[in-house]
């Protein structure tokens, strides 16, 4: 009878260890997405072009990640991209005239959003929109612009 209990005991221990491993990895080894879990507020921004910005891309200010991209949709009227960002509630004091720009980490890295604080005394509230935005720089457009420009120059000469 004693052996029967040790069998069940070790089985229970096994389950505990397994669950502990499961939860430890889930909370300690992954990005749980704490920005979206209640402790965050949302702000909106419109861009004429977002490049290959993706949901969950980081949102940074002065290089410090303060949130992430929640969703990206196309406004059917203005044909602009509307990006909704989660901002950590810790950083509630952002001026209303903050501007947003889409940049690239390194040369070949992922796109992210960088916020530049303005000087307004009023602070952004949940659901507010940023009005000053810098769209993503698309490499092909740059290249073609440069090529066409140089062609134009040649014609002028």
């Amino acid at each position: 009878m004693r052996s029967r209990h040790t069998v069940e005991l070790t089985a229970g221990l096994f389950m505990l260890l397994g669950l502990a491993a499961l939860l430890f990895l889930a909370f300690e080894a992954t990005d749980v997405g704490s920005y979206s879990a209640g402790k965050a507020y949302q702000i909106k921004a419109r861009f004429t072009n977002i490049g290959d910005l993706k949901p969950r891309a980081p949102v940074a200010m002065a290089g410090v990640t303060i949130g992430d991209v929640k969703s990206i949709t196309l406004d059917p009227v203005t044909y602009e991209a509307e990006v909704i960002m989660n901002i950590d509630a810790k950083y509630a004091e952002l001026p209303t005239d903050t501007s947003a720009g889409i940049y690239t980490k390194g040369i070949l890295g992922d796109k992210y959003i960088e916020l530049e604080p303005g000087g307004s005394p009023d602070m952004l509230q949940d659901g507010d929109q940023l009005f000053i935005t810098n769209s993503a720089v698309v490499l092909e457009k740059l290249v073609s612009k440069y090529l066409f420009n140089s062609e134009d120059d040649e014609e002028q000469e």
Binding site: L22, L25, A26, E28, A29, T30, D31, V32, G33, R56
Partner: peptide, 19 residues
Amino acid sequence: FWGRMISAVDLGPDYLSGV
């Protein structure tokens, strides 16, 4: 090592999909 790992692994698409 640990920090890069955490920021690269997303709970849903990376970890939970494995689960």
